[in-house]
């Protein structure tokens, strides 16, 4: 298939005794947003560093647009835009100086590829003479993205671009990624925020260096084959404890103001649970069967 942009086959990497990633394989299609979703230390950065030619895998092959990451690393470096986990900007250079610097490094100019970064850059332009170190988190993130895009890469690799960034900036950032996708850029992005999975075309859930699952967000949710209940009562603290000690409880996790609950019994009815909670003197009991989200699925895979 010509449609495949990134092809990762059985890569493995260890640091001393620690196995960072164990036998990972996946492919990313052209102009797809592919998300690596998992907590810190699960191996996301290692995978991205191998793809961006910064690290060598102990085993396995990685191929980007037909080029091998080891043999053709110089070619690959011209085609990818990379935003490492930490905001890799020069704090003591201004916005425009950072941008110009990265443009010259890639042998281009800001004007040449202005179209691509225009939407993003316009938002930070009012601050173009401010030092990067003095920008807010969201602004830094936009500048870093502009810098990664300045040479018009075909593949964009973003390592936790939204970590530590507030909810508003995160939203805006994902909107920008959707627009870039339309411009035919393949995007690989990692994040510890489960709710961002639904914004990707396909995701891989990763934990301890292994993929728990890899599919479209919808398909992953489809695989959740249990009934999931959302429960709320007037005394949430007691509700937690009661459900923890309930003999039929399979899982019970807090989600915002609710608890998400699964039952060990196959075809349990709402009334059963209600009865139990009433017996524990809970009032104002609200129980609803709900559609799971990616976080439910992630925890489900984790406990399997």
């Amino acid at each position: 298939m010509n449609n495949i942009t990134v092809k990762v086959e059985n890569i493995y990497k260890s640091y001393g005794d620690v196995e960072a990633i164990k036998d990972i394989s996946f492919t990313v299609n052209n102009s797809e947003i592919f998300g690596l979703i998992g907590p810190d230390g699960s191996g996301k950065s290692t995978i991205f560093r191998i793809i961006t030619t910064l690290l060598l895998a102990d085993k396995g092959n990685v191929n980007l647009l037909g080029f091998d990451v080891i043999k053709d690393y110089k070619k690959i470096r011209n085609m990818i835009g990379y935003m490492p986990g930490r905001f890799s900007l020069y704090q003591d250079l201004s916005v425009i100086e950072n941008l110009n610097f990265f443009a010259t490094v890639f042998g281009t100019t800001v004007d040449e590829n202005y179209d691509l970064i225009k939407d993003i850059y316009l938002q930070i332009e009012p601050f173009k003479n401010r030092l990067a170190g003095k920008l807010s988190g969201g602004m830094k993130q936009k500048l870093a993205l502009s810098c990664a895009l300045i040479h018009k890469p075909e593949i964009l690799v973003l390592d936790e671009p939204t970590t530590g960034v507030d909810a508003v900036s995160r939203k805006e950032f994902w909107e920008m990624l959707r627009k870039l996708k339309e411009k035919n850029i393949t995007i690989l992005v990692s994040t510890p925020y489960m709710d961002e999975a639904s914004l990707c075309d396909r995701v891989a859930l990763i934990q301890n260096g292994e993929f728990l699952n890899i599919d479209t967000p919808d398909n992953i949710i489809q695989q959740f084959n249990k009934k999931l209940w959302s429960i709320k009562t007037d005394n949430m603290y007691e509700l937690r404890n009661d459900l923890k000690n309930y003999e039929y409880t399979e899982t019970s996790f807090a989600f915002g103001q609710m608890l998400h609950y699964t039952d060990k019994r196959k075809n349990v009815e709402k009334t059963e649970i209600e009865k139990f909670l009433s017996s524990k003197e809970h009032s104002n009991i609200k129980i609803n069967m709900i559609k799971p989200n990616i976080e439910d699925c992630f925890m489900d895979f984790m406990t399997k």
């Binding site: 998992g38 907590p39 810190d40 230390g41 699960s42 970590t163 530590g164 510890p192 489960m194 934990q207 603290y237 937690r240 996790f253 807090a254 976080e295 992630f298 925890m299 984790m302 406990t303």
Partner: peptide, 24 residues
Amino acid sequence: DEPTGGVDPITRRQFWDLIYEASH
């Protein structure tokens, strides 16, 4: 101050269990 950044969803909830208990 952002005590649960980057931890997995189950640990995050266990962390909040501890917070609830402390508050209790």
